[in-house]
Amino acid sequence: MAVFSSVVDLVGDTPIVDVSQLSPNPRVRILAKLEGQNPAGSVKDRIALGMIEAAEAAGELRPGSVLLEPSSGNTGIALAMIARIRGYHLKIVLPENVTVERRQLLEAYGAEIIDSPGAEGSNGAVRLAEKLAAENPEWVFLYQYGNEANPEAHRTGTGPEILKDVPEITHFVAGLGTSGTLMGVGSYLKEHKPDVEIYAVEPPSGERVEGLRNLDDGYVPPVFDRWGGMELLDGKRIVRPVESLTWTRRLVSEAGIFAGISSGAAMAGAAKVAERIDEGVIVFVVCDGGWKYLSTGAYTEPIDEIAERLDDVIYF
């Protein structure tokens, strides 16, 4: 092993593990790309580094600069790690109802937390960050939902890593949040292996967002539109909390992969694809480890009870 000069040098080059013992179809292999191996613990390390380096290259960031970002956790945590090392002051707009681990991690890395109303979910955090950015033009607003460096980090990093390690890939499955992973990896794979199919999974998150006044408050990430998400994706499905939790538990108990709850959703999506195809090789993204979700009881308590509680906690 080499000696690295900074944890930032550890971002990317994550391992892929065969979890085909979970495949419902013996002719379909399922492979997990373990993004929780990144130094701040999630796939978001890639885009945090990409967005910060793009802003540095554009001359927008100097030591002491203030960074602003709406994030329910992982992006904020990744930005906080890098900002601390590079000398930037980070303000994270965080919905009140995220798990306590995320709040503590942000504090540990030295980020300043600005609360947004929990009932408005991520939409509310985005809206508040937009308002603060308009009021404070000297702050650098990275805005992961619209920042080209987000999908670009996956087009130039995650995508090539996957194709190099798994040239026989036939399907790719990942969670749809900002859409950065799916757009970046998806466009790289389609360019180099056009037959690969790209599938998105998402939680039923709009069902109970109480703060949503009407559908005009809805939101589609600019990255999704600009990268041609409608054409790029071959399918998109909801995975409900009970299913996400069931597969999160199976990942840890049958494959030893202690993953976050949205990774269980991605695994559920991979299993659905596996049932439908004759044969193939599916790669899905484990976007973080389970550490930040321990306080939800996701790994130990009755699934129905946790699923009920998850309706009020942002986990995707």
């Binding site: 994030s71 956790g73 992006t75 991520s122 939902y145 709009g206």
Partner: peptide, 11 residues
């Protein structure tokens, strides 16, 4: 059938 509003996801 389920009808859902599009909301911001991502972490």
């Amino acid at each position: 059938l389920a009808i859902l509003p599009a909301v911001a996801g991502g972490q």
